[in-house]
Design a protein around this nucleic acid. Sequence first.
RNA 1: GGCGCUAUAGCCAAGUGGUAAGGCCAAGGUCUGCAAAACCUUCAUGCCCCGGUUCAAAUCCGGGUGGCGCCU
Length: 309
Amino acid sequence: MVQANTLNKIVIVCGPTGSGKSELAIDLALKFNGEVVSADSVAIYKGLDIGSAKPSLSDMRGVKHHMIDIVSPFEEFSVSDYENKALEIISDIISRGKLPIICGGTGFYINSIIYKLSFGNNQGNSDIRNKYESFYRENGADSLFAILQERDEETAAKLHKNDVKRVIRALEILDLTGKKKSEIKDDFSPRFDYVAFTIDYPRAELYDRINLRVDKMLEMGLSSEVNSLIASGVTLSKQCMQGIGYKETAEAILSGEDIPVELIKTNTRRYAKRQITFFKRMQNLIYLNPKDFKEIAEIETEKFLKNEN
RNA sequence: GGCGCUAUAGCCAAGUGGUAAGGCCAAGGUCUGCAAAACCUUCAUGCCCCGGUUCAAAUCCGGGUGGCGCCU
């Protein structure tokens, strides 16, 4: 375990999909003797390459990448799994005297390494989830929410009754630990000293880039990638198949329809919007102009590394 | 040229006399073990234009304009 230590410095490259994070992270790694730690909930899966825009070997330019291709498409993977593995890797990188560069668009994953979140102190339990899910299906969101209101009023007050996933999670914590989610207090002081960068494209320009990138994924053979996943037995219900581009393509293939390109683009754009919203709350985040992002990122990283705090 | 049908938000669309449903898109937001997931909020002082009837018109009447269809 990495202990909070102000000498532990890491660099974070985050932001919406299609903004050029991977390339910037690699640039910085080359310049500052770093290794890239991916923070991407889809790129962790083996075999999901094109749709997750994984950097190719040549893109990586010899920079070591971690947290990519680490789980099989049949496995489930959670933030907590991510946190454990990533923390181990980060401390190893630091111990070797190199700079960890966290790069990815999954804000929740990034938060898990910056902050020491407890995540309710227990892992998901499919029996319990199934129990409440079927209750929900039979009785509706209001009835499900009423249970939580009775058992943990404080958490219920923070959730919307339609947010079934979170309502179920709160109930799950109650069942598993006997404790209320609202009783668990977390420490939000960062465990690392970090700077974060995001390349700040004007919205319209970002959307253009995304649209083009989706077209490119199709050209590169997204549908055959999805085909082979299906052929190997990966079903739509698998977690990895929730990825944008994967679910739409898989559904189209299974029903014999054309791949809904426009839908994939729309979903990707909406995802980018959610990412932008998420990262707005990140501390120490430097918004880089697309014109000179590389130079500024280098200057800022240099300043950050020199500063002993 | 004649006849018929039609015109509601960026798009689809309900509404047939009582003060503009819903969906999509878009924008903003939430986020503590599924996060590329899940969820929330906002989005037509106005119904093609002009005139009329009426206490009251997107709704009825007349005329115009655009679209669609049929006929010559």
